[in-house]
């Protein structure tokens, strides 16, 4: 049920107290007009019916339908707008999904291209590396051969030079020329031992 606020209860109490004094006053002068003016009851009730009936007709026929229509119209409009917004939102989401899909495809493609290029570069690099190292090995071997040849040549010359030097030295020191064959033999033996 309806609960009256405390302030109102106090007000009602004080009002009731005043009311009693008012009634007491009224008793001296012939009662409350609300009660004593019995002859006006019919008129009050009659005009209540007339005026309230008029109000009811104006409200129910004119005022309330208008307000109801406006509120309904507004609600429809808002619902309509909301629905449109929803449609547009879902459309935007579709577009976004499409965009993201395209983006991921492009990314994959780019990744593929990058992979391929790097593979190609690596293959080419490997190839060149291989060719270069082969060439390098070849040159090394050639050089080594050349060095070996030079070395053996030098050694051969060295032996004859040594023999001649030994013979000449002996000749100068002792005054006797040794047998060249014996010198060669001795130099050979000495070189074998030293080198």
């Amino acid at each position: 049920m309806v609960k009256l606020p405390a302030a109102l209860r106090i007000a009602a109490l004080s009002a009731a107290a005043t009311c009693i004094s008012g009634v007491a006053l009224a008793a001296e002068e012939g009662g409350l007009p609300q009660i004593s003016q019995v002859d006006t009851y019919a008129s009050q009730i009659f005009w209540l019916f007339v005026t309230f009936g008029l109000l009811y007709i104006v409200m129910s026929r004119v005022a309330l339908p208008r307000i109801g229509d406006v509120i309904e119209e507004r609600r429809d409009k808002i619902d309509d707008d909301l629905m449109r917004a929803e449609t547009i939102r879902s459309e935007a989401e579709d577009v976004l999904a499409e965009y993201e899909k395209a983006l991921s495809v492009a990314r994959e493609e780019a990744l593929g291209i990058q992979q391929k290029t790097s593979d190609e570069v690596k293959a080419k690099m490997d190839e060149r590396h291989e060719a270069f190292s082969q060439e390098l090995a070849e040159r090394t071997r050639e050089a080594e051969e050349r060095i070996a040849a030079a070395k053996s040549e030098a050694l051969k010359d060295l032996a004859s030079v040594a023999s001649e030097t030994a013979a000449a030295t002996t000749d100068k020191l002792v005054g006797f020329t040794p047998d060249s064959k014996a010198v060669d033999k001795a130099v050979q033996a000495e070189m074998k031992e030293r080198l």
Binding site: D39, T40, A42, S43, Q44, F46, W47, L48, V50, T51, F52
Partner: peptide, 11 residues
Amino acid sequence: DLSFTNSALWM
């Protein structure tokens, strides 16, 4: 008595 009174006027 259905007189148009001050009460009726204010209604």
